[in-house]
């Protein structure tokens, strides 16, 4: 499915004096069906806000968000959730759910109001647990897992939602190098095999360079640039985005662009 935002304006806690309010200004982004888009930018640039607008959790004050051409505002939460799944930065349940319970909750938008999950739902949950390498954890309480295990369980839960679009906020932030690569290859495989359209907000420039076919660069609530990764990810763009002097080079063995930050520039 495709997802498009046009001329989006959004501000938190709109106040007359404009103080303390963070806003997005005139953001337009088109996410083609099956694309894998990275959203890059410094802390507080609006990445997470953009993801929340894309998932319909926040409603824009002006502009449109459209899922396959249908206005997001006209869809129920349930309808949206059947197509769009979200992996948030962190998940803290208030009670001690087991891993399998957490994953099965992803089936919620597909079940009727009083329906309990059946064998098919259980099969999908087991598949997602295997796909994320967490099947041996299924009977463990979620709260006893390590950060990386939790993140993979939350991704499994998003997978059983059978989404057409997957929005991920810092999916590898709490993972060690090995799991970063594993999650990256999992996401690439899901994108390739199931045609899931993906958007990931990340600070990991090398992950974005290896994984994403399209990049959106944001700063201060504006989109600075967007386009194919090879064209957008340049020394000049990194300097403009982070005030950092960096070397962007093609890495022969990795087979993608790599970014080596050199120093902060004023």
């Amino acid at each position: 499915m495709s997802l498009a935002v046009e001329h989006l304006f959004f501000r938190y806690g709109a106040r007359a004096n404009g103080l303390g309010a963070f806003s997005l200004h005139d953001v337009s982004v088109a996410l083609a069906r099956g694309s894998l888009t990275g959203v890059l930018g410094p802390n507080g640039c609006g990445k997470t806000t953009l993801l929340k607008l894309l998932s319909g959790v926040l409603r824009p004050q002006a502009g449109t968000v459209a899922l396959d051409g249908r206005a997001m505002g006209s869809l129920s939460r349930r309808e949206i959730a059947r197509h769009i799944a979200v992996v948030p930065q962190e998940t803290h349940p208030a009670f001690d759910y087991l891993v399998l319970d957490m994953v099965l909750m992803g089936r919620h938008p597909h079940l009727g109001p009083f329906a309990l999950e059946g064998p098919d739902d259980l099969r999908m949950a087991r598949e997602a647990l295997v796909a994320t390498g967490t099947h041996q954890l299924q009977a463990r309480p979620y709260m006893t897992l390590s950060g990386g295990e939790k993140q993979r369980v939350v991704i499994a839960s998003a997978l059983v939602q059978a989404p057409d679009v997957l929005l991920l906020d810092e999916p590898t932030a709490s993972l060690d190098l090995g799991y970063q690569l594993e999650i990256a290859s999992l996401l690439a495989r899901l994108n390739r095999e199931r045609g899931v359209t993906m958007v990931l907000a990340t600070h990991d420039l090398n992950l974005a360079a290896s994984l994403c076919d399209t990049l959106v660069l944001m700063r201060g609530g504006h989109v600075l640039a967007q386009g194919p990764t090879g064209e957008v990810l340049t020394d000049a763009a990194i300097r403009q985005l982070y005030d950092v002097d960096a070397d962007v080079r093609f890495h022969e063995r990795a087979g993608h662009l790599t970014v080596v930050p050199v120093r902060r520039v004023p």
């Binding site: 939460r77 949206i80 948030p88 803290h92 349940p93 208030a94 759910y97 957490m102």
Partner: peptide
Amino acid sequence: ATLPSSLNLLSVGAESAATRGVDV
């Protein structure tokens, strides 16, 4: 009687409940 599955998702988090289809 109408609440239990929404309560499961709400206790995981209001925002994650919304993205799983709960009218929070």
